[in-house]
Amino acid sequence: MTPLTTALDDPRLRFRIDCFSVPAASRGEFEEATRRNLDFISTLPGFRGHLVFRKTGGPTAFDVVTLAVWESQEAIDRAATAVRAHYERIGFDRAASLERWQVRSELGGYELLRGP
């Protein structure tokens, strides 16, 4: 996996932040699928790094958060297409897996808020 090592002040950068609520019984399978996905996306053009957070406290329902950094929105768009094709090749149905694991998720694209 590619750790986050890029400076975040480039205005072209875009961020994919995904939040998950993962039941303990599904944690192993979920984390393995997350590792496979991160290993794949780290090979794609425009990928700049990632971080994975595991909750240690606080009132949020989400206990796993991933942050992927991309050089541009175009890189994210190309990556989304590549990930869908990769999932099809390996026979991974993301929606069905999340349902089977009883994982709740919220996914989004972000840009860094700049200025005062």
Rank of each mutant, 00 (worst) to 15 (best):
D18C: 05
L107V: 08
H86A: 01
A68L: 05
L8R: 02
R94V: 05
L4S: 08
R14C: 15
D39C: 03
R36Y: 01
I17F: 00
F20W: 08
V69T: 11
G58Q: 10
Y110A: 02
E88A: 15
C19S: 15
E31P: 00
V64E: 01
Y87L: 04
T43E: 04
S105H: 10
T60W: 06
A82K: 12
V64D: 00
L44V: 01
S42N: 10
A96H: 00
R104D: 12
S105E: 14
L38K: 02
D39Q: 13
R35W: 07
Y87Q: 08
T60S: 14
F92Q: 05
F15K: 02
F20S: 10
D39S: 03
W101P: 09
V69N: 07
G109Y: 06
A95V: 08
G108W: 02
V64M: 02
T66C: 07
G91S: 07
R78D: 03
D77M: 02
S42F: 06
D10Q: 10
S21A: 02
V83N: 03
V83Q: 12
R84D: 12
R36S: 08
R35Q: 07
L13Y: 13
V52P: 02
R27K: 14
R35I: 06
R104N: 12
D18Q: 03
A96E: 10
R78I: 03
L8P: 10
G57Q: 08
F30P: 12
E32A: 14
R54F: 11
G108F: 01
R104T: 14
S105L: 01
